[in-house]
Structures are given as structure tokens and as C-alpha cells.
Amino acid sequence: MINASVLYALAGVVLFGMGVYAMIAYPHLLRKILGMNVMGVGVFMVFIAISYQGPEQRADPVPHALVITGIVVAVCATGLALALATQLHALTGSARIPADGEE
């Protein structure tokens, strides 16, 4: 039987893939930033899933500390990215990155 650790690690991998897809496929910067955050949550989920050692044992605290650090850094990166996107929108009137061949 598949245990919870493996299940959540796989879910994290899928989340990471979704984030990568959204970041590449969609031109709107806000959606790229959403994709970046979903990627981040996917990575965190793999970390936390690996540290989980069943209901009896206490989970490994080292990945937990890394993830807390990661969450706070992710929100900072998001804030900076949003400031850049806002500025781009104010200057060009659009928050999209056009694909090759588009105007």
C-alpha cells in the first residue's frame, strides 16, 4: 500500500509541473506569478512529505525549518515580482509578455 509520504510527494511533483506549465504557457504576468507560487508549494510539499515518518514518529524538523524560510522568501519574491509587473503595466499599458510572432 502506498503510504501518505509517497502520496503527498507525488502530489507536490504534479503541482510543480502545473506551475511550470502556467509560467511558460500563459502570457499574463500575474498568472506567471501564480504559477511561480504553485511551483513553490509543490517543492514545499515534496520537502514536508519526505520529512513525514508515519503517525508514530516525530517528523524531521530540518526540512520544516527550510520550508518556513522558503515561504517567507517566496512572499518577498512575489512582492518584488508584483512591483515589477505593476511598473511594466504602468509604463506599457499591458502586463503581458507577448509570445514570439505576436505583436
Partner: peptide
């Protein structure tokens, strides 16, 4: 999910910040 995986510290940070 973090609470389920015995990471309450991370859950607090995720709910508030993330």
C-alpha cells in the same frame, strides 16, 4: 496538508504568509 503531515509550524506560516 502541512498539519496532516505533522508540520504545524509550517502550517501557521503558510496560512498567514503563503
Amino acid at each position: 496538508a502541512w498539519v496532516r503531515l505533522q508540520a504545524p509550524d509550517v502550517a501557521l506560516a503558510e496560512a498567514a504568509v503563503g
